[in-house]
Design a protein around this nucleic acid. Structure first.
Length: 412
RNA sequence: CGGGAUGUGGCGCAGUUUGGUAGCGCGCACGGCUGGGGGCCGUGAGGCCGCAAGUUCAAAUCUUGUCAUCCCGACCA
């Protein structure tokens, strides 16, 4: 894409009403637009990152036989009444409204109950199990207080998956498979080294859940970790979990983390409440074992920014960067040759953001760095004389002068 | 929902204490110079000073209300 055709404009200053680093940088670099507190729109640049993250998650969920679908944002009151969660005393983050005929509806903050209600239509026999479905959905949550930029909004993109099983053993086995899939996801997002599976509060249906927590100063949680990182417990269940695991609490050290995923087993409790049963080989009806698995897509995006940014701006891992290359043209012959290089790289399947604007070099360099594109390729008059191009790595500032063939080989 | 702070061209800010006809930087438009780190010069466009009521000859400035935003806390499947 040519920069001259991209409407995005970068800014030297961050908006005064944002203090979160992720929001400041994402707004300055033109990835997001703030609509109101906790609500952000994503620009053409921003959705490229979201789609990259989603695709990684999609591939890993498909690999464990998850089937993608999309539920609705509008939900029925009756769907939630069976489990008592329509009540605002049970769930205090509901957005609710009414149809013109007075019918009450809710805006989806979760899709647990709606998924069960829908799957009931399709799953009746042990032959239909196990099954696992997932979606990417914009969740709407009426949080009393939004904060931390895109890390905790009232509207955010989440991947939620639900698995259904005939037995506890089958659910447990699949649950462990999901943990491994999640680890692959966080590895690919560049967060693997700092993300840990932790014991956390189980909420309404189980005693403990597992959270995927990434060490991040901007996070809201406190994790207690053993020195070898083999045990990680969320502060909210520290006493319970350590006694259950037989661990001396004083050996664990606190770190600030951000929750980037949460998985939990419902067992059969929710199925029983929602009349979600299957007929077994024995001809009798049995409740279905359910588990649920979430990944905050937009939150992960915010965490990546928080963790990788330096004083010049964002530093996207190559796996989620909106473009692989930021191509800078300098001077007249530089621009002419940059046009060629652009076509050359695009034809080779490389995603290039080509800064073809009539701007001074410094402005282009600053934008390349602020936007966090992994590689900057510079084509200037003086490089054209040598028939060479320059490659600069965003993360390390390492610079090399190459032929265009070597450039392509390096980028691949 | 409790506590604190802030709302002034698209963005960042000054002006409010001591009321007197709104200013700076960035950005934007036009012209020129420049051309490897957000460069320079000139000209110009753009503002119901969050909104509403009140005090006053006169309100960005004082009073009251209200809305919004941020931070801390509580909350957070």
């Amino acid at each position: 894409m040519r920069r001259s055709e991209l409407y995005i404009k970068t800014s030297k200053s961050a908006p005064a009403d944002e203090t979160a680093k992720n929001a400041q940088l994402l707004i300055r670099a033109g990835f997001v637009y703030k609509v109101m507190a906790g609500v952000y729109a994503y620009t053409p640049l921003g959705i490229r990152v979201i789609e990259k993250i989603k695709q990684i998650v999609r591939e890993e969920m498909n690999a464990i036989h998850g089937q993608e679908l999309v539920m609705s944002s509008l939900q029925r009151k009756e769907t939630w009444e069976a489990t008592g969660r329509w009540d605002e005393k049970a769930v205090d983050i509901w957005f609710k409204s009414k149809l013109q005929d007075g019918t009450e509806v809710g805006f989806g903050w979760s899709h647990e109950e709606p998924i069960v209600e829908m799957m009931r239509q399709y799953i009746q026999s042990y032959k239909d199990l196990p099954s696992s479905v997932y979606q990417f959905q914009t969740k709407l949550r009426n949080e009393v207080r939004a904060r931390s930029g895109i890390m905790r909004g009232r509207e955010f993109v989440m991947k939620d998956m639900y698995s259904m099983h005939a037995s506890q053993e089958d659910m447990d086995q699949y649950y462990d498979q999901v943990i491994e899939a999640y680890k692959k996801v966080y590895d690919r997002l560049g967060l693997g080294d700092s993300t840990f599976v932790t014991f956390a509060s189980g909420g309404a249906f189980t005693k403990f859940s597992h959270e995927f927590q990434t060490i991040c100063e901007a996070g809201e949680d406190t994790l207690y970790m053993s020195p070898d990182h083999s045990v990680a417990v969320n502060g909210e269940v520290l006493d319970d979990a350590t006694s259950e695991l037989g661990i001396d609490k004083s050996t664990l050290q606190p770190v600030t983390t951000a929750e980037v995923g949460n998985i939990f087993k419902f067992g059969t409790e929710k199925s029983e409440k929602m009349d979600f049963y299957y007929t077994g080989e024995d001809g009798h009806r049995h409740p279905i074992y359910l588990a649920s698995y979430g990944i905050g897509i937009t939150r992960a995006m915010g965490v990546i920014v928080e963790k990788t940014a330096d004083d010049k701006g964002i530093v996207w891992p190559a796996t989620v960067a909106p473009f692989g290359v930021y191509l800078v043209s300098i001077g007249e012959s530089g621009s002419r040759v940059a046009d060629e290089i652009y076509q050359y790289l695009v034809d080779a399947g490389i995603e290039v953001l080509y800064d073809d604007r009539d701007e001074r070099p410094g402005a282009k360099f600053a934008d390349a760095e602020l936007m966090g594109i992994p590689h900057r390729v510079t084509v200037s008059d003086r490089l054209v004389e040598q028939n060479m191009v320059e490659l600069t790595v965003r993360a390390t500032s390492e610079t090399s002068v190459l032929t265009r063939e070597d450039l392509l080989a390096t980028l691949r």
